[in-house]
Amino acid sequence: MNFKLKIWRQPDAKSKGRFETYEVTDISADTSFLEMLDILNNKLIHEGKDPVAFDHDCREGICGMCSLHINGEAHGPDTEITTCQLHMRKFHDGDTITIEPWRSAAFPVIKDLVVERSAFDKILQAGGFISVNTGGVPDGNTIPISHDDAEESMDAAACIGCGACVATCKNGSAMLFVAARVSSLAKLPQGKVETLRRANAMISKMDELGFGNCTNTRACEAECPKAISISHIARLNRKFLISRFKN
């Protein structure tokens, strides 16, 4: 398969970026999207040109490092996958593929397709933890947790912090990320105790870092590679408001 790639190139955070067009040929349909970019980069290095910078790590959809906006969609044209799980069989031979970095004021571009996502770390540092030592892993069923609560917590904990929610949201809101982190702990006995303080601290930090306001468009849920539901946002809203009214 042959493709024309329209890729955002930006030397550094301060420079102005622009699209550059490249061609890749003889790509197998079973090649992953990131492998295809590796092939392009090999070609660019052989030609003495600067390779395209892009984030990646585990390449199996669990680390949340890959972050590309492909043909107008976060993580490309497939559902519930990350960019590293996307394969070239999802495209047609001869397609022009537009590749952009996440676009959000809170995620500034560092170079080419790499964005700064430390804002998420700062939100987690503000409250995404349990502040006491809860000991080692307890024996199964020592602490009774209902099946529904355990499932809901695990669903929320599936968030890999890739930032697709922010990248997709027309408001650049991080509510789905914060909601997933608050929910995953709020549904378990160890994390439940500090839910209100956690919701308050994480939302305050989110606002401080310049993320937008959630307007419930559900776009984040549609593009989340882990299909995290916006029902977690309703819980976060509830907990935050209770926390503020109590104070």
């Binding site: 329209k6 970026g17 699209f19 906006h69 043909n71 107008g72 537009t98 952009e100 676009r103 959000s104 004021a105 809170a106 027309k170 408001n171 650049g172 809101s173 310049g210 993320f211 937008g212 306001n213």
Partner: peptide, 10 residues
């Protein structure tokens, strides 16, 4: 403002 100055081309 939160969305940023540069919009998606696609």
């Amino acid at each position: 403002r939160a969305r940023g100055k540069i919009r998606y081309a696609e």
